[in-house]
Amino acid sequence: MRNKLELIKTVDTMAGEVKMNDLHNLKEFFEKMGMDSQDQRHGILEEIISFMDALVGQDYEKANNAVHSMMKKGQDDLFKEVGKITRKIHTAINGFKEAIDPRFKEIATVDMPNVIDKLQLVIDKTEEAANKTMETVEKYILNMDDLASHIRNLEGPESSVDYLKEFKNKLENDLTGILMAQSFQDITGQIIKKVIKLVGDIEEELVRLITTFGLKIEQGVKTERTEGELISQSGVDDLLKEFGF
């Protein structure tokens, strides 16, 4: 209480007029610096002038209001800025959400799992084919020795026996070549497996991205297939019969 009175006295009796002038000069100075009425400082300066005015006039209520108003102004501006930033973030997120092609969802949940299945099918089918080829080739390769001994037993014209011997050797070489060529399956299979892994990783990231930005992923979509019931050739034949074939 004592401090307040002393301050008022000082402002009132000694330098009140001077200080008020100084404040007005300061306002002019700020205005020259390009401070417009929208500037935060402008408002606070107004409040300070009002505060000082009130003190000079010993209007404590007005001074108190001026102080509250100053505090409020500071907070308002802070809230305003936070609000602006929030709105910007919100707009950016919404824009990004719209930018994500709705097809993304289908790609992530249907197409990519399908691609993985198809690639796996490629591995399985080429493996099956390679095995079948090798099985057949081996059947003959394993009998080459028998063939050689039969040729040795032949007593025909020498030229024919020689022809058969050479034929047998060439055949054996070529069969081995075919057998070796089946190794392609191993090499391609390994590459496809790497691609499967990569597609799987991308799929996971896509799903995460889509979920983050609010596109709902229905659980279980991954395992569902839109394809219908698969049937074998005998199933096809039954159907044909049904239709009078």
């Binding site: 394809e227 219908g228 019931e229 698969l230 049937i231 074998s232 050739q233 199933g235 096809v236 159907l239 044909l240 239709f243 074939f245």
Partner: peptide, 27 residues
């Protein structure tokens, strides 16, 4: 194409017969 509804679709469109790959020479 070994889906049942597709086979039916082909039959309705007037196919004379239908073979599912892989197939054999005998078939």
């Amino acid at each position: 194409e070994a889906e049942k509804h597709k086979v039916v679709e082909a039959i309705k469109a007037g196919v004379n017969n239908y073979i599912v790959k892989p197939f054999t020479a005998e078939l």
